[in-house]
Amino acid sequence: MVKLTSMVKTSGCAAKLAPAELHRVLDSLPKVENEHLLGGYADADDALVWKVGDNLVCIQTVDFFPPMVDDPYTFGQIAAANALSDVWAMGASPAVAMNLMCFPACLDIDVMRQIMLGGLSKVTEAGAVIAGGHTISDPTPKYGLCITGFCSPAQVWKNGGAVPGDVLVLTKPLGVGIINTAVKAGFASEEAAATAVKSMTTLNKYARDAARELAVHGATDVTGFGLLGHCYEMAQAGDVTLRIDSSALPVIEQALEYADLGMLPEGLYNNMDYLKGQVEFPGGLRQSLRDVMFDPQTSGGLLLAMDASDAERFTETFPDGRIIGSVVEKKDYPLVVF
């Protein structure tokens, strides 16, 4: 059986280009304006928002990456859960999807079939359909999807709506990037690997559904830029400061141990570099816990800003959800960890 991860240098959302480099390029491009375009990368939102009519917007996103697990079917599931997530992070429902596949000519074609079947299983669970795609030959396998979803304009959750007084809710535990690195190194326990896979294949649909009737002011999903990277985008977009309670963070237990063993993906250091000078940390914070906050998450959870009363209702109906902090008036630092 082929080990998919042995064919790649970086994997999952840790393969994302360093945010500092990416923003240098994006900021240098001409700004696109169109009366139908209600949001795009200028706002660092998770997906573009295109106004179709007065009562309907189209949400579109694309995501693909090299494998972070060896099993092709599981890889397909994770890639699909990750790509679909951006649509839920915008408050919409995915409708149609297209596959993006890069596949080595030397690999058994059944591996590609297994990846696509894994993707299909998650898109079907999401209530959407795969209706096309594109495949190219490439020495490094990669898979992902372009997803289109819809909702009414009033239902759109933006990155930038968090207001002082809100609390922050996170819907999945942190640490999958570190665990994936430990798996690659042969350092991880089977239990830790299984916990990470279960988290990465869980659709954010259920978290979105649980928050559907609540007043969500700001929303994003925690992926390649890590918890703090995505908190930073939310803070900047809303012109507020986010306070994060390090003792309240949900973390996959073994990730802290593996961080102490140097199992940190390269992307984690890129995230640290990107946020240099933007985060106030308390003295005496455990180094591995600080590491986890920068860990690139593959198919991570939703980060939601809402009233404290709504957050309590949410965590009752969605027990995996944790209140991890609050939103305050803008201070010297956009992010304050305590």
Binding site: A259, D260, L261, G262, M263, L264, P265, E266, Y269
Partner: peptide, 15 residues
């Protein structure tokens, strides 16, 4: 020859 390796080997060695 890179920062990630420097940091990771240091963490491992310290532990």
């Amino acid at each position: 020859d890179n920062v990630a390796a420097k940091e990771n080997v240091t963490r491992y060695a310290n532990t």
